[in-house]
Simulated scan of single mutants.
Amino acid sequence: MRLAIIGAQHGHVLGITRQLVAEDGVELVAVAEAEASVREETASAFGVPGIADYRELLDGSIDAAALAPINNEKGDVAVSCLEAGVSVLLDKPAVTTLDDLNRLEAAAGGSAALSCALTLRFSGPYLAAQRAIEAGEIGQVVSSMAQRPHKCGPARRPAWFFDRELNGGALLDLCIHDVDAVRWLHGCEPTGVAAQHGATRFAEYPTFADHAEVWLRLEDGGSAFLRASWLTPDSAPYHGDCRMLIEGTDGSIEIRTTAEDSCTIDKGGRQRTLTDFEGPSLDTPTADAPNALARDFISAARGETDLAITAADVIASHRWTLLARDAADHGTLVTGS
C-alpha cells in the first residue's frame, strides 16, 4: 500500500505515520505540505520526497493518506482524496464546519475508507471500561463526567492554532474525544446539547477559547458533562490530568490517563483497579491493542475488515461537537432535529 502524508501541521501525524508504516506492505512514498520548512523537515525525517501540492498525488500515485493540514483545510483535502479513491486517516478534528462535515459525509459513501484519530477507542483504560460495561458490571450507564485539561505552550504553537476560523476552537480540538467516548460507552446517541466556551488565561488571542464545557442529553434519558481546557500549568509533570467517571445503576467506573493510566471498577465498595497499560498516545500503542489505530485503518483500506471507528462514528461525533460549538456561540440548547 502506497501511503502519503498530506499536511504536517501537527506532530500527531508523525506518530500516526510511524504506526502506519510499521504495518506489513505499507510504504510511505511522499510528504505533501504547502509550508516549505515543515515540508522539508517532515520529508527529511522519513527519507521521502516532499511536494507542495497534494493534488499531484491524486492521479493514482497513492492508495492512502495520513492527513494533518491546518484544521480548516482538512475538509477540502479529505473530500478530494476520497473522491479520487484514496483512503484517509485524519488527525482530529476532521473538519471545522458543518458544511464541510456534510461534504465529507457524502464523499465517504464511496469505496475509499475514512477514519479519524479518535484514539480513546484504542486506549487500554477506555477499552477496559467498555468491556466492563458490556459485561454488565455496573448495570445500565446513567451519566458520565469527563475532563481533558492540556498544556498550551504558546511559544511552540503555530499562529493558526490561536485563530478560531483556522483551528476550530477548543471544543473541536479537545472535547471531540470525549463526545466520541460518550457515544461509544453510553451506547446511545445524544438528543440535545448545551455548551459554553471562553478565554481566561490566554485572553490576548481574540478568537481563542482556552476552556470549554459541554452538557449532552442522551436518547435513553442519561446525560454527560464534559470539560476541556488549555489551562494545565507549564510546571506540571504531565500534559494534562485527563479523567472520566461513569455512573451506572449497579456501580461506577473511573478512568485516568496521562497523569496515570488506570481503570477502577467500583461495585458497591468492591473495587478492582486495572493499571497494566502502556498508554493511549499515538507514539505508544496500548498493551491491549498495539498499533490498533493503524491496523484498523489499513485493514479497512485494503477491504479486509470494517473499521472499528466507522465513517458514521466520525461524522456523528463531529456533528455533535459542532452543534455544541453552535450552542456555546449562541447560548442556547441545540437539539438533533
Rank of each mutant, 00 (worst) to 15 (best):
A107E: 05
L82T: 05
S44Y: 10
D91A: 11
V38P: 12
R131E: 15
D76I: 13
E40T: 14
Q140P: 00
A84Q: 12
D100P: 07
R55K: 15
A45M: 09
S115G: 08
V79L: 09
K92S: 01
T97A: 02
G109R: 15
F122K: 00
A132L: 06
T97L: 03
S87H: 03
P69I: 02
S87I: 08
S115A: 13
V38R: 15
L127E: 02
E56M: 07
P93Q: 01
P93E: 01
E83S: 02
L28K: 03
L58P: 05
E33G: 05
E137C: 09
D63R: 10
T97P: 08
P49A: 10
R103C: 03
M145R: 15
A108P: 05
P125H: 01
V77D: 07
A43T: 03
L58I: 06
E56L: 11
C81A: 12
E35V: 14
G139I: 03
E40S: 14
L114Y: 09
Y126H: 13
L118R: 04
M145I: 10
L114D: 00
A34Q: 05
E134C: 03
S61M: 09
N72A: 13
E134M: 13
K74R: 15
A106Y: 11
A135R: 15
A65Y: 01
D91Q: 07
G124T: 15
A128M: 00
Y54E: 06
A106I: 11
E40R: 15
E27F: 07
V77N: 00
